[in-house]
Measured scan of single mutants.
Amino acid sequence: HEITLHINGRRVKLRFRDEKAAEILKEAAKKGLDEEELKKLAEELWR
């Protein structure tokens, strides 16, 4: 699955395995994680 989040006016595509991962990524984006941090988090969730 993929999700596209808008971060600092940019579109960031993240891959994720399940809905739980999608929710975690959305929450992290709301908390203000930047693009690099979100990509790292997405990679961690993928494993």
Rank of each mutant, 00 (worst) to 15 (best):
H1I: 11
H1P: 05
H1Q: 13
H1M: 13
E2Y: 15
E2G: 04
E2N: 07
E2V: 14
E2I: 15
I3M: 15
I3A: 02
I3W: 03
I3F: 07
T4R: 04
T4H: 08
T4W: 10
T4S: 07
T4P: 01
T4Y: 09
L5D: 00
L5C: 05
L5R: 00
L5M: 07
H6E: 15
H6S: 12
H6C: 15
H6K: 10
H6A: 07
I7A: 05
I7Q: 02
I7F: 05
N8D: 07
N8T: 03
N8I: 02
N8M: 06
G9D: 05
G9S: 03
G9M: 02
G9V: 01
G9K: 03
R10F: 08
R10V: 13
R11P: 15
R11S: 14
R11G: 11
R11F: 15
R11Q: 15
R11Y: 15
R11H: 15
V12W: 02
V12Q: 01
V12F: 06
V12K: 01
V12L: 10
K13V: 15
K13Q: 10
K13E: 05
K13S: 07
K13W: 04
K13N: 08
L14R: 00
L14Y: 04
L14I: 07
L14H: 01
R15F: 10
R15P: 07
R15T: 06
F16T: 13
F16H: 08
F16I: 15
R17E: 03
R17T: 05
R17A: 08
D18I: 03
D18L: 03
D18Y: 06
D18R: 02
E19P: 13
E19K: 12
E19T: 10
E19L: 11
K20G: 09
K20A: 12
K20C: 06
K20H: 08
K20W: 10
A21D: 15
A21K: 02
A21L: 03
A21S: 15
A22Q: 08
A22I: 08
A22D: 02
A22N: 04
A22P: 05
E23M: 13
E23A: 13
E23W: 09
E23K: 13
E23S: 12
E23G: 12
E23L: 12
I24Y: 08
I24L: 11
I24N: 04
I24M: 10
I24C: 08
I24K: 10
I24Q: 10
I24F: 08
I24H: 05
L25W: 06
L25G: 02
K26M: 14
K26R: 13
K26G: 05
K26E: 07
K26V: 13
K26A: 06
E27D: 13
A28I: 04
A28P: 00
A28E: 06
A29R: 03
A29K: 03
A29C: 05
A29Y: 13
A29H: 13
A29S: 06
A29M: 08
A29P: 01
K30V: 11
K30G: 10
K30Y: 10
K30T: 10
K30D: 11
K31A: 13
K31I: 08
K31F: 10
K31R: 14
K31V: 09
G32F: 06
L33S: 09
L33N: 06
L33G: 08
L33C: 05
L33E: 06
L33V: 10
L33Y: 14
L33P: 02
D34I: 09
D34Q: 12
D34W: 06
D34M: 10
D34S: 14
E35Y: 11
E35K: 05
E35Q: 07
E35G: 08
E35W: 10
E35N: 05
E35M: 10
E35V: 14
E36N: 13
E36D: 11
E36H: 14
E36Y: 13
E37P: 06
E37Y: 09
E37K: 11
E37S: 15
E37A: 14
L38M: 12
L38A: 02
L38Y: 02
L38K: 00
L38S: 01
K39D: 04
K39H: 11
K40R: 13
K40F: 12
K40Q: 14
L41W: 03
L41I: 07
L41G: 00
L41V: 04
L41F: 06
L41D: 00
L41E: 01
L41M: 11
L41R: 02
L41S: 00
A42Y: 03
A42V: 04
A42N: 04
A42R: 01
A42C: 05
A42L: 04
A42W: 05
E43M: 09
E43S: 08
E43W: 05
E43G: 07
E43V: 07
E44R: 09
E44T: 09
E44S: 09
E44G: 06
E44A: 11
L45W: 03
L45S: 03
L45V: 03
L45G: 01
L45Q: 02
W46T: 02
W46A: 02
W46N: 03
R47D: 14
R47N: 15
R47H: 14
R47E: 14
R47L: 14
